[in-house]
Computed example of a mutant assay.
Amino acid sequence: MSKNYILVGAYPNRDKQQQPGGQLTATKLLVEYATLHDIKLHIIDTSENTFPAPSLKKRVFKAIRRVIELRGVIKENRVDGVIVFSGPLFSFYEKVLMSAIAKYYGKKSILLIRSGHFIDSNQRSVVIRYLNRYLLKIPSKIVAQGTKWVEFYKDMNVDISKVELISNWIKVKENHNYIGNRDKVVFLFAGAMVEKKGVLELFDIIQTHYQELKKYTFRFAGEGALFEALKQRKEENHLDNIELLGWRYDSDMMDEYQRADVFILPSHAEGFPNAILEALNYRLPVIATDVGGISDSIINGYNGYVVDVKDNESIYKSIKQLGESFELRNKFSKNSEKILKEKHDFYQNCQALFNLF
Rank of each mutant, 00 (worst) to 15 (best):
A279K: 10
T27E: 00
K215S: 12
V127K: 12
Y257G: 05
E327W: 06
P52A: 14
D240F: 15
K107F: 08
D261R: 04
L136T: 08
T35M: 02
I160F: 05
D290Q: 10
Y134S: 11
V67E: 03
Q18V: 14
S55D: 11
H37C: 08
P285K: 08
L353H: 06
V186C: 05
I205D: 01
K154I: 05
L97M: 10
L226A: 06
N175R: 12
G224A: 06
I101E: 03
D296M: 10
K341S: 08
E76I: 11
G116E: 02
D261Y: 04
F332D: 00
I119G: 02
E256A: 11
H209E: 08
A190F: 04
V291N: 01
E235H: 07
R124G: 03
N241A: 07
L36W: 00
E337G: 06
R329F: 09
L131K: 09
I138P: 01
E201I: 08
N300L: 04
I6T: 00
A100Q: 09
M193I: 15
I315C: 02
D311H: 12
L111C: 11
V262M: 07
Y257M: 09
D311P: 07
D15A: 10
S336I: 13
L322V: 12
S167E: 12
Q19E: 14
L230A: 03
D311A: 12
D15T: 09
E236L: 14
K234V: 15
M254W: 04
V84K: 01
K3L: 04
D308E: 15
R182A: 10
K334G: 15
F272L: 15
A275N: 14
D345A: 06
I83C: 00
V8E: 00
I138Y: 04
K234N: 06
K154S: 08
G271C: 13
S295T: 05
L131E: 05
A279Q: 11
E278Q: 15
N175W: 03
L41D: 00
K214P: 00
N177I: 15
N237W: 08
D255T: 14
N274W: 05
I43T: 06
M193R: 06
E48K: 08
D240H: 15
H176V: 09
